[in-house]
Design a protein around this nucleic acid. Sequence first.
RNA 1: CGGGGUGUAGCGCAGUCUGGUAGCGCAUCUGGUUUGGGACCAGAGGGUCGGGGGUUCGAAUCCCUCCACCCCGACCA
Length: 580
Amino acid sequence: MRTSNFLLATLKETPADAEIISHQLMLRAGLIRKVAAGIYNWLPVGLRVVRKVEAVVREEMDATGAQEMLMPAVQPAELWEESGRWEMYGGELLRMQDRHQRDFCFGPTHEEIITSLVRNEVRSYKQLPMNFYQIQTKFRDERRPRFGVMRAREFVMKDAYSFHLDQDSLQQTYDVMFEAYSRVFSRLGLGFRAVEADTGSIGGNASHEFHVLADSGEDAIAICDKYDYASNVELAEALAVGGDRPAPSAELELIDTPGQHTIAAIGEFLNIDVETTIKTLLVKAAEDSGHSAIALVLRGDHQLNELKAEKHPLVHAPLTWLSDEEIHAAVGCGPGSIGTVNLDIPVIADRSAANLADYVCGANQEEKHYIGVNWERDCPEPEVFDLRSVIEGDICARAELPADDDSTLTIKRGIEVGHIFQLGTKYSEAMNATCLDNNGKAATMPMGCYGIGITRIVAAAIEQNHDDRGIIWPANMAPFDVVITPVGYHKSEQVKQHCDALYEQLLAQGVEVLLDDRKERPGIMFADADLIGIPHRIVIGDKSLANSQFEYKNRGAADSQDIQADSAVEFLAGQLNLGQ
RNA sequence: CGGGGUGUAGCGCAGUCUGGUAGCGCAUCUGGUUUGGGACCAGAGGGUCGGGGGUUCGAAUCCCUCCACCCCGACCA
C-alpha cells in the first residue's frame, strides 16, 4: 500500500473525550472514529488490525475442529420468548419492530439462534459433539459505554457454541477451548491470565474469564501465584481472618457516641482499630423467607460482596438495600446506629465478623454504641456465610494451613477479552433441543459457549504495548509488517527507484508493506510510522545510499542499524520469520 | 438509571460572568523558501456558536425547553 492512496487519518492532538491511552491512540493513529456513543467507524488501518486478530482466532478455532458459520444479527422475538430471555434480558437488548410490527432484536449473543438450528439439524448422538463458531457484530445497549471500543455497544465478537451427549463430553470440549484460548492470546502477544469467574446472567456450571492485565482494566482479579490461583474478585472465596474466636474478655457496655454514624468516625471517636468493629447492613429478604429484612454483618473494614450475598437463600435477589425509612421501621434507628444486640431480624455474619470477640457495634438507638460485644453471650450466634470481597493480603482459599506469606492474594486489574462457560442444559431444555442417544431415547444436549471480544482485544493490546510516541504492535496484530520511509522520494531519482524496487519485492514475498510516498517532510513520516506502530521501518535516503545501504529500525528498539541495500529483502524476511 | 461536567471551523481551545461586526493554534488549499524527527513566509477557504422557543433595538452570551457527548457509581466480550 502506498500512503498516497491510503487514508492515514492521524491526529497530532488528542481528542478531548478520550480518557484512556488505548482510546487516545486509536483515535490519533486513525484506527477508529466515533459515530455515536459506543458506536464506531473502523478506518482502513484499524480494520487491518481487526482482521489480524480474527485470523489468529479463526486458525485456532479451526484447529479445535469447530465449524465456522454465520448467524443473523437481527433475531425474531419468538426464539427469545422460548428461552425466557425476552422478559429477562432487560434494557441491554436492543429491540425493534419490522414494518408488520413484529418484534425483533439485534443480537447481543446467539444461544437462541444456534439452539434452534441444532435442534432441527442434529438427530443422533453419533453426530456429537459439535462446536459451531462465528465472528460477527453484536449489539448490547450498555448502560454506560466508555473507553472507546473497550466497552462499545456495537462490537465484533467470536462466539462459539458446543453441543454434547453428556457432561464428560462437554468437559472435554471445554478443556480444548481453554487451551485454544490460551494459544490465541499468547500468539497475539498479550500478557493474560485465565481466572475463575461467576457464571453471571447467562447461567450454567463452570466458567473461566481470560483477562489482559492492565491498570485501566474494569475488573479486579485476585491472584496467588503459589497455588496458581486466579479468580475474579466478585467470586474469590474470602476466608476468616485470624484464628478461632477468642473467649469474651470485656464487659458489655452502652456508651454515648453523639454524631458518630460511620465506621471511620467511630474508630476515630473511640480511638480504636476499625478491625474491632462490625457494621450491620439491612437488605430486603427473599419473598418466600417469611421475613421482611435481613441483617448482613461484616467487620468494619470489609466490603460487602453483593453477588455473594444474593446467593444466600434468605436474601432477595437482586440485592436490594432498605431505605432509611424502612430501616427506622425495622430497628428504630438510622442506618449509622444498627448493631447485633437486641436485633429482632435474621442475622447473617461474614466469617471474619463471626470470629470477632469484644467488638464494637451500633446499639439500635440513635447516638449510642455498644462496646465489648460478644456473640452468644450478648446476641445469638449468627449464621456464618462468605459475604465479603477479598482484599490484598487475604489468605488464598486454596492455601494449605498454616499459611505463609506466599499464600496471600494480590489484586490486579484486568480487561476481560474472553469468557468460556459450561451452560449445561439451560437453553437446550428451555428450547427442547434433544437428540437420540444409543437407546433411541431423546436426550437433552448439554451445551458450552465460548466468547472472545475481537475488537476489545485491539484496545487491550494497545493498553499493554505503547510508548510516548504511539502504539507498538505485537507482530501478529500489526496493520502492516514494514513501512518504507523515503527521504527525498520526490527529489532524488535513486531514492525513488530503491524505494519502489524494495516495495515491489516485499509485496511479491507476501509482506504487508506501506510505502510512505507522500510529499511530506521526514519528521512527519517518522512520527506517523511510530504513532501507527508498524514493527519494522526501512529508511531510504541519499545519505545511506552513498554506501549502498538502507537504515533499519524496529519500532520497539532504541536505535537503528544500517543494512546492505541488496540484501534488504533477505534481512527483512529474517526479521519477519518468513517461512516459519 | 442516579450524581457531576461539556457542547463555538476537521482537531485542540478562548470568548459566555458584564448582550454590541465570531476569534486563536493546528490541520486544509495556493505561491515561494526549505527538507534525516511533527519547518518558515505570504495569502485563501472553511461556522445554522448542539436544536427549538422566549426576552431585547440587538443573543454564542440572559431565560425556558429538548438533544448529544464525556466522567464517577450498580453490569458484561
